[in-house]
C-alpha cells in the first residue's frame, strides 16, 4: 500500500485515529520531561546565569517555526502535483502552529537578548528573519481565509507557499546582509545548541523531541478537523443541491 494511500481522507482518519493516543502520550512524556529537566535540574551557566534556561523553549520553537514552513512547502507541492486533499489540509493545519511557534521564538529570543542588548528589541538578524517568517505565515492564513471555494483556496495558497518560500529564503540572506552594520553582542542564534556543554544538551534534545511530537499531534488533530469541516461543507452543499 503506497504512501499515497494515506492521502485519502478515510484512510488518514482511521490511521490517525489509533495513532493519536500514543502520540499524545509520547508528547506529554518528552515535552513534560524535557521542560522539567531543563528548568529544574540544570545548573546555572557561568556567563549567562540562569537565562540559559530560556534555551529550552527558544531553540525548539525556532526549530519548529522553520520546519513547519518546510512541511507546508512539501504538502503544497504534493497538492499541486498529486491533488490529494489531505496534504493541502495538513498544510493549512500546520500554518497556525508554525505561526505560534514563530511568535514564541521571537518572544523568547527578544526576552533572552534583553539583558545583553539592554533593549527589548534589537534588530538582530536572526530575530528579524523570524519576524519576516511570521509575516509570511500571516499572509498565508489570510489568503486561506479570504477565499470561499476550498479548492481554489488550496491552489492559490499552495502557489503562494512556493513563491513565498523562495522569497523567505532570500529575505534571510538579505537580512543578514542588512544587519552587517550593527555591532552585535554575543550571538544568540538558533545554532547555539552545537557548542552547548553536555549537561545542557541532553535536556535540550528532549525538549526538541517534545516540541516535534507536539507539532505532529497538533497538526494531526487540526488536519482531522479540517477534513471534518470539508465533509461538513460537502454534505451541506449536497443537501442544498438536493433541496
Amino acid at each position: 500500500m503506497s504512501l499515497w494511500e494515506y492521502a485519502n481522507p478515510k484512510k488518514f482518519m482511521e490511521t490517525t485515529g489509533w495513532l493519536l493516543p500514543w502520540l499524545t502520550a509520547l508528547t506529554a512524556l518528552t515535552l513534560g520531561g524535557g521542560l522539567v529537566w531543563g528548568f529544574f535540574l540544570t545548573p546555572d551557566a557561568d556567563r549567562f546565569g540562569s537565562t540559559v534556561k530560556i534555551l529550552y523553549v527558544h531553540v525548539p520553537s525556532a526549530f519548529i517555526a522553520i520546519n513547519a514552513w518546510v512541511m507546508m512547502l512539501v504538502t503544497s507541492l504534493i497538492w499541486l502535483v498529486r491533488r490529494h486533499h489531505v496534504s493541502v489540509l495538513a498544510a493549512r493545519a500546520a500554518a497556525p502552529v508554525g505561526m505560534v511557534m514563530t511568535l514564541i521564538a521571537l518572544f523568547t529570543g527578544a526576552v533572552w537578548g534583553q539583558p545583553m542588548w539592554g533593549t527589548w528589541w534589537a534588530w538582530d538578524p536572526r530575530l528579524t528573519a523570524f519576524l519576516i517568517l511570521f509575516l509570511f505565515y500571516l499572509g498565508y492564513l489570510a489568503l486561506w481565509a479570504a477565499i470561499e471555494n476550498p479548492d481554489t483556496a488550496a491552489d492559490l495558497t499552495s502557489v503562494l507557499c512556493l513563491v513565498g518560500s523562495v522569497f523567505a529564503f532570500l529575505s534571510r540572506y538579505a537580512v543578514y546582509f542588512w544587519a552587517q552594520g550593527l555591532h552585535q553582542g554575543a550571538s544568540l542564534s538558533v545554532d547555539r545548541a552545537q557548542h552547548v556543554a553536555d549537561v545542557y544538551a541532553y535536556p535540550l534534545w528532549l525538549t526538541m523531541a517534545g516540541f516535534v511530537f507536539l507539532f505532529l499531534t497538533l497538526v494531526f488533530v487540526r488536519t482531522r478537523t479540517e477534513i471534518r469541516a470539508r465533509r461538513l461543507s460537502a454534505l451541506v452543499a449536497r443537501e442544498r443541491k438536493a433541496a
Binding site: S50, K53, V57, H58, F107
Partner: peptide
C-alpha cells in the same frame, strides 16, 4: 534559585 535573571527566565517561560 534563578538569581539575577529570574525575571527574564520566568517571563520567557511564562510566555511560552
Amino acid at each position: 534559585d534563578l538569581g539575577h535573571y529570574e525575571m527574564t527566565v520566568l517571563l520567557a517561560w511564562g510566555g511560552t
